Computed example of a mutant assay.
Amino acid sequence: MYIQKSFKQEQEVGSLYIVGTPIGNLEDLSPRAQEILTQVQCIAAEDTRQTRKLLAKFSFSTPLISYHEHNQQSRGEELIERLLAGESIALVSDAGMPAISDPGEDLVQKAVRSHIPVIPIPGPNAALSALVASGIQTQPFLFLGFLPRSSKARKCELAKWAKLPATLLCYEAPHRLVSMLEDVYEICGDRIVAISREMTKKHEEWLRGLLSDCLAYIKESGTKGEYTIVISGVDSIQEEEEKVLWWDQLSILDHVKYYIDQGKTKKEAIQLTAKERGLPKREVYNLYHTK
Score class of each variant (00 low, 15 high):
27 E>Y: 02
100 I>K: 01
16 L>S: 06
11 Q>D: 07
279 L>W: 08
132 V>H: 04
240 E>N: 02
83 L>I: 07
283 E>I: 09
206 W>I: 05
108 V>A: 01
118 V>Y: 09
106 D>P: 06
68 H>E: 14
191 R>W: 12
21 T>M: 02
5 K>Q: 10
155 K>L: 10
172 E>C: 08
38 T>L: 03
74 S>P: 11
28 D>A: 05
184 V>S: 00
161 W>C: 06
49 R>F: 14
147 L>G: 05
192 I>S: 10
144 L>A: 01
219 K>H: 15
36 I>R: 01
281 K>N: 12
233 G>N: 09
175 H>D: 11
54 L>S: 01
145 G>C: 04
169 L>G: 15
289 H>V: 13
288 Y>F: 15
149 R>Q: 10
250 L>W: 05
73 Q>H: 12
159 A>P: 12
78 E>T: 10
150 S>R: 11
116 I>P: 03
263 G>H: 03
196 S>R: 02
244 V>Q: 05
141 F>H: 14
176 R>S: 11
212 S>V: 12
96 G>Q: 03
34 Q>Y: 07
98 P>I: 03
236 S>G: 04
124 P>E: 03
38 T>P: 13
40 V>C: 06
36 I>M: 01
40 V>N: 00
290 T>D: 08
26 L>K: 03
191 R>I: 15
43 I>T: 11
250 L>Q: 05
285 Y>F: 13
233 G>V: 08
227 Y>E: 02
85 A>Y: 03
28 D>E: 03
135 G>P: 15
212 S>T: 12
102 D>H: 09
125 N>I: 05
226 E>C: 09
243 K>G: 07
67 Y>I: 04
269 A>N: 13
90 A>S: 12
113 R>L: 11
158 L>S: 07
138 T>M: 08
179 S>A: 11
145 G>L: 00
105 E>L: 05
17 Y>I: 07
121 I>Y: 02
160 K>G: 13
274 A>N: 07
190 D>P: 11
284 V>K: 00
68 H>D: 14
136 I>C: 05
217 Y>T: 15
247 W>C: 09
78 E>L: 02
22 P>Y: 01
14 G>N: 04
255 H>M: 08
43 I>W: 01
278 G>F: 11
280 P>G: 06
280 P>Q: 02
77 E>I: 06
186 E>L: 00
120 P>M: 11
173 A>M: 02
45 A>Q: 06
62 T>D: 08
44 A>Q: 02
235 D>I: 04
49 R>Y: 14
195 I>W: 00
1 M>G: 10
227 Y>N: 00
166 A>K: 00
237 I>F: 00
144 L>T: 05
85 A>W: 05
56 A>M: 06
275 K>I: 12
202 K>E: 12
220 E>W: 10
130 A>Q: 08
85 A>E: 12
68 H>C: 05
291 K>F: 14
25 N>K: 08
199 M>F: 07
163 K>P: 12
11 Q>V: 10
82 R>M: 06
79 L>H: 10
251 S>I: 13
177 L>R: 04
142 L>Y: 06
189 G>P: 11
